[in-house]
Design a protein around this nucleic acid. Structure first.
Lengths: 113, 113
DNA sequence: TCCTTATATCCTTATATCCACATACAAGCG
DNA sequence: CGCTTGTATGTGGATATAAGGATATAAGGA
């Protein structure tokens, strides 16, 4: 087992990524960027959320290096920094799906009794 | 594109999982349980964190169906509910590793100038 | 039934997060 | 330089989450 302090240190970094994902708006933003790079106003229009809020969320994702910003004239284009983050989100979806199937089965067995 | 309300609904569930992972202690707990099922006191000893704190974190993980609790006499044995969650955590580690390598390279190029 | 062990929950304080309005800053145009 | 468009940030209130000591509950033995 690794040194405990180092272990905690790694989990602190780990946590930073998880925290960035722990918001529905940010998850939506990441999926949007997975399709193609987007300008901020495209995200504002697509998600119908105030610009300041979108910008704030992009800041969080940027700070954690999950997206990259590139200035293009007066606009800023955002790109997904690492597609593995989508892989992570997709696996979570499969876990969620499994959980839902399980609860449906439990509900059905309760009805049948 | 799916209906927007449903989309948001799904991301709310998605968020629940991410939030559960967004804490160093809970990540450590999950990795411990990945090795083998554990009793609460084993986790308390291994992580050297107060029992009430461990118990609360286990409650969070339990509520999100990421771990399962099974009573065994007066003790309670916790099990990982879905090993894919470890897969998720491991991918995040590789993302973290990539980020670290990148920042080291940037730092080196700054030194060389 | 009382006691011990193992775990969960309550309570209070400290901290973090979210939202969105108002405002500041940056880039390009006339 | 002033104006417009596009983006980021300051701010404050509402809400959520964390920690850990104190306490309650569950199970089993004496």
């Amino acid at each position: 087992m690794v040194d405990k302090k180092l272990e905690i240190e790694i989990e602190m970094l780990h946590k930073r990524i998880c925290q960035a994902l722990a918001d529905p708006t940010r998850i939506l933003i990441l999926y949007h960027l997975a399709d193609k790079p987007c300008y901020v106003n495209e995200l504002v229009d697509a998600l119908n959320i105030p610009q300041s809020t979108i910008s704030r969320h992009l800041g969080v994702l940027r700070e954690k290096n999950l997206v990259a910003a590139e200035r293009d004239g007066s606009a800023v284009k955002y790109t997904l920094a690492d597609h593995r983050i989508i892989e992570v989100l997709d696996i979570m979806r499969t876990i969620l799906a499994t959980q839902l199937v399980n609860s449906i089965e439990i509900a059905q067995s309760l009805i049948e009794e």
